[in-house]
């Protein structure tokens, strides 16, 4: 479903060119659970921004569900982000003045779902992360782990094909982190593609496969030997 060939991204700042990606190629199939790792400055954030259509590459090709993406308009990119992609951020990015319900509703607002049909979708999404008792609570009053679970519910509500999780456990204690990872694991077991960005090997090994970047190039792309066992270990 995702195929990148010789993907490049240059940033130009006051005439000086910085290459964040210098030609990266790989394929991710439907249902994969992939971790992207690399030290800071390796280009992993840039890669994820391009894969999730928040940014455009300056070279190479990105094919998404068999379709080349370089000629898509900003509005088409916004629609793809809305329908096909769910985001989970390190810092949650909830609107804390709103309730859990209202936060999870936001993607539905932009996909034009009628107000009457939203309630069930939102309740289902919040139930799937086990926080139905917090549905009408202002998210400012939730714990970090609960916030991240509401953020996952928001990512799920439009039934996307891919979940992008950027350091989802980075701001959480180990118990909350384990809960979040087990939710992501469950989503993947149900057939969703999950792309996880992390710098923790332990978390990365939750995936079936780890893509490592260094200085904007692919350093390695290796399967995880025993991902299920490592998931259980993490859960302990």
């Amino acid at each position: 479903m995702i195929d990148v060939r010789d993907l490049k991204k240059d940033y130009i700042d006051e005439g000086e060119v910085t290459s964040a990606l210098r030609g990266v190629s790989f394929t991710i199939n439907k249902g994969d659970f992939v971790s992207i790792m690399g030290p800071s400055g390796s280009g992993k954030s840039t890669l994820v921004q391009i894969l999730s259509f928040l940014d455009r590459p300056t070279g190479g090709t990105y094919t998404f569900f068999g379709r080349k993406t370089d000629d898509l308009s900003d509005i088409e990119l916004a629609h793809i982000r809305n329908k096909s992609i769910g985001f989970v951020f390190q810092s949650f990015n909830l609107l804390t003045r709103l309730t859990s319900y209202e936060n999870v509703e936001i993607p539905l607002i932009y996909s034009g779902v009628p107000v009457a049909s939203r309630k069930k979708m939102i309740e289902d999404a919040i139930r799937s992360v086990g926080l139905e008792e917090k549905i009408y609570v202002e998210t400012a009053k939730l714990s970090g782990g609960q916030k991240q679970r509401i953020a996952i519910a928001r990512a799920l509500v439009n039934d996307p094909d891919i979940i992008f999780a950027d350091e989802p456990t980075g701001n959480l204690d180990s118990v909350s982190g384990a809960q979040v990872m087990s939710i992501l694991d469950g989503l993947n077991r149900n057939g969703r593609t999950v792309i996880l960005v992390t710098h923790e090997t332990n978390t990365a090994e939750f995936a079936d496969r780890i893509i490592r970047l260094r200085d904007g190039v692919l350093e390695s792309d290796t399967p995880v030997k025993n991902p299920h066992r490592s998931r259980e270990q993490f859960a302990k």
């Binding site: 999730s52 928040l54 900003d74 509005i75 916004a78 629609h79 982000r81 809305n82 329908k83 985001f87 990015n93 609107l95 936001i106 993607p107 932009y110 996909s111 928001r154 439009n158």
Partner: peptide, 16 residues
Amino acid sequence: TREIGLRKSVGATDGD
């Protein structure tokens, strides 16, 4: 600004 970023990431267009 972050709210704008979030809204765009979940599908808001410039027009929205």
